[in-house]
Amino acid sequence: MSISIQNISKKYKNVQALQNITFEVQEGELFGLIGPDGAGKTTLFRLLTTLLVPNEGNATVADYNILKHIKEIRNSVGYMPGKFSLYQDLTIAENLTFFATIFGTTIEENYDLIEDIYVQIEPFKNRRAGALSGGMKQKLALCCALIHKPKVLFLDEPTTGVDPVSRKEFWEMLKRLKQKGITILVSTPYMDEASLCDRIALIQKGKILKIDSPDAIVEAYEKTIYEVATNQMHNLILDLKEFPSQYSVFAFGEFMHYIDKNDSFDMDVLRTFLHDKGHQNISIQKATATIEDVFMDL
């Protein structure tokens, strides 16, 4: 077992950041922590990387106890905090050398691990980290977190503030790292990234709501979702909420996702209802559920 968490709770003065968290991550698994801001994702990362001490519970990372084997854990995990936290006034090469040295290794020794990523930023290796674009910063941070060949990689919202192309590239890099046997725990507020993980945990207000593979989570979702669009989208959400048998309504891209309380829901009744409210060009159709739908329903 690469990460094993038992009943961990953490409280900051008045805020219960984490409540009885228990789950396990297999070796070589790409595990996603999905949840909104303030859900407790970063706190969990900081606990597992020995930066915080839990109030209750315990955990092991790479078979080391987070309370007892702090030094061993620090040697065998890579951590990329949500905020870019490398030295902005040092160059790419200097940052990488710095982290290699404090881990008692060299760039050459583990070059094969970072090669794929490093070649992309190598042309700029004498540029200061502060002058890099968001995507390049991300790649550099990943290189620095990997330079000592960690067994477990912790990535706290690695793609927040990164453009869609770089995000896609980043997830491809993670897949390649996974193939090299590195366990990856990654958190993200983006639901579309969840489907790229082997398994995900949906987390909210310090509690784990569901843990499973993304497909299983979606499959297990029983309710039928309808996507609705009309010519007056900003009134639509208010009008849908007035529909007597509505269960939930939320914006989803260019549509409204509508869920009804009854299984025997008739689209035509809703269509007439909306037409009476003055909507035109009404389109209502069944939609396939996504992680986001599941999450919104929790």
Binding site: T49, K83, S85, Y87, F99
Partner: peptide, 11 residues
């Protein structure tokens, strides 16, 4: 700057 966080997880 947050660099301390990164330093603190190193040995």
């Amino acid at each position: 700057l947050g660099t301390l966080e990164q330093i603190n997880v190193t040995p």
